[in-house]
Amino acid sequence: MANKAYKFRLYPTGEQEQLLAKTFGCVRFVYNKMLTEQQETYEKYKDDKETLKKQKFPTPAKYKEEFAWLKEVDSLALANAQINLQKAYKNFFSGRAEFPKFKNRKARQSYTTNVVNGNIMLLDGYIKLPKLKLVKMKQHREIPSHHIIKSCTVSRTKTRKYYVSILTEYEHPPVQKEVQAVVGLDFSMSGLFVDSEKGKKANYPRFYRQALEKLAKEQRILPRRKKGSTRWHKQRLKVAKLHERIANQRKDFLHKESHKLAKRYDCVVIEDLNMKGMSQALHFGKSVADNAWGMFTTFLGYKLEEQGKQLIKIDKWFPSSKTCSCCGQVKESLSLSERTFRCDCGFVADRDWNASINIKNEGLRLLALI
C-alpha cells in the first residue's frame, strides 16, 4: 500500500471560519496542556528511566470536564494533537529531535481529522468535514476512484486562505524499472542545478531576489504602523501576500522541473549536501534558501519512486568539483572563484558541468553495487 495527498483550496462561510478558528485554538490548547504535564513528569522522573516509561500519557478527554468548550470542536482533531505530541516525545527519546516545544498562535494554524463512518466525503464541489458539514472546495484535479481517503488536514495561511490536504491510500505494487537513462545533477547557486548531459542549467528565476526590493519597501512601512491598528493589519497582509507569492512561484517551478527529470530519466544522481552548513559557512544564506534545494530533492524523490525509478545520493565529501571527469586526476585545491576546470591532461570544461559528470559516474558505480 502507498499514500498520496491531494491539496485543495477551501472557501468556508463566516460561521465555518469561526469554528475553524476555535478548532485551531483548541488543538493548540490541548497540545500545550499535555506538554506541560509531560514536562512536569519528565523533570520528576528523568533520573528513573523505568518509572518514566510506566507513566501514562495524558489524553484530551480529561480536560473536557474542566473546559466544556472543547466539546464544541472535532474530537478527532484533539486526539491527533495527542498523537503528534507522542511522536514528538518518541523522536526526542530516540535522539532524532529536540525536546518538544509549545505551540504558538502565530505559527502555522492546522489540525488533522480522520475518516470514521463516512464523516468525510467529497460531494460535487464540496467536502463534508466533521462539525463543519459541507465546505465549498475548488477541486482542480480528480482523486482516482481506487484511492481511499484516510485523513484530512485543514490549514490556514497568514493571508487567511484555507486549504485541505486529503491523505489517500491505494495499492501500489513496487515495480522496479530497468535503469537505462541516468543523469547527474550538481547543485548550482545561480541556476539550481547543472546536468551531466550537456551542462544544461535549470535557470531558476530566483523569485526571492526579484521581489527583494518590493518586499524591503513593504517591510519598512510595517513597523511605522501602530501594532494592532487597521492600517497595521493591512500592511501585515501586504507583506504576507508577497511572501506567499514567492513561495508559490518557487514551489511551482520546482514541481515542474522535478516532473521533467522524473519523466525523462530512470535514475537521477545528486550529492547529499548539508545546505544549512553551506549557507552559514559561505555566507550564502539568502541564495541557498531561495533555491530550496531540499524541497526540490524531496519532490524529485517521490516522483521517481512513484514510477519505480531511483534517486541516488552520493557522499557529500566526494570530490566532484576537484576531480577531472576525463582522466580522473584529483586537484589538491580549487577556489570558488575558479568557474572553469582545467586539468593537466588538457581537459577544459565548466566547473559545474565537470562536477555533474563526476556525480553521474559515482552514481553508476554505486548502482552497480546495489
Score class of each variant (00 low, 15 high):
residue 312 I to F: 03
residue 267 C to R: 10
residue 308 G to T: 09
residue 266 D to K: 04
residue 285 G to F: 00
residue 286 K to I: 04
residue 325 S to C: 08
residue 294 G to Y: 07
residue 319 P to S: 02
residue 316 K to C: 05
residue 305 E to Y: 09
residue 327 C to W: 12
residue 272 D to C: 07
residue 277 G to K: 00
residue 270 I to M: 07
residue 310 Q to A: 10
residue 326 C to H: 13
residue 291 N to G: 07
residue 271 E to G: 07
residue 291 N to I: 00
residue 327 C to I: 12
residue 270 I to S: 00
residue 289 A to W: 10
residue 266 D to S: 08
residue 287 S to K: 04
residue 313 K to N: 08
residue 307 Q to W: 10
residue 310 Q to E: 13
residue 315 D to A: 12
residue 311 L to V: 10
residue 312 I to A: 08
residue 317 W to Q: 08
residue 269 V to T: 09
residue 303 K to A: 03
residue 323 T to R: 15
residue 261 L to S: 04
residue 270 I to R: 00
residue 291 N to E: 04
residue 322 K to M: 09
residue 278 M to E: 04
residue 271 E to S: 02
residue 298 T to F: 08
residue 314 I to W: 07
residue 264 R to I: 12
residue 287 S to Y: 02
residue 274 N to G: 01
residue 270 I to A: 02
residue 273 L to A: 06
residue 318 F to R: 07
residue 256 K to Q: 15
residue 328 G to R: 06
residue 290 D to K: 07
residue 326 C to P: 04
residue 314 I to K: 01
residue 305 E to H: 13
residue 329 Q to A: 14
residue 259 H to E: 13
residue 301 G to T: 13
residue 300 L to D: 09
residue 307 Q to I: 06
residue 327 C to M: 10
residue 276 K to R: 11
residue 272 D to A: 09
residue 315 D to V: 11
residue 310 Q to K: 14
residue 317 W to R: 12
residue 287 S to D: 13
residue 298 T to Y: 12
residue 312 I to Y: 05
residue 304 L to K: 03
residue 291 N to S: 12
residue 318 F to S: 05
residue 274 N to D: 15
residue 325 S to N: 12
residue 303 K to R: 12
residue 312 I to N: 00
residue 319 P to A: 06
residue 269 V to R: 08
residue 280 Q to R: 15
residue 266 D to M: 05
residue 308 G to C: 06
residue 306 E to S: 11
residue 301 G to F: 02
residue 311 L to M: 06
residue 315 D to N: 15
residue 291 N to M: 14
residue 265 Y to L: 02
residue 303 K to P: 06
residue 265 Y to F: 15
residue 276 K to P: 00
residue 308 G to V: 01
residue 324 C to P: 07
residue 287 S to H: 09
residue 300 L to Y: 05
residue 301 G to D: 13
residue 323 T to E: 11
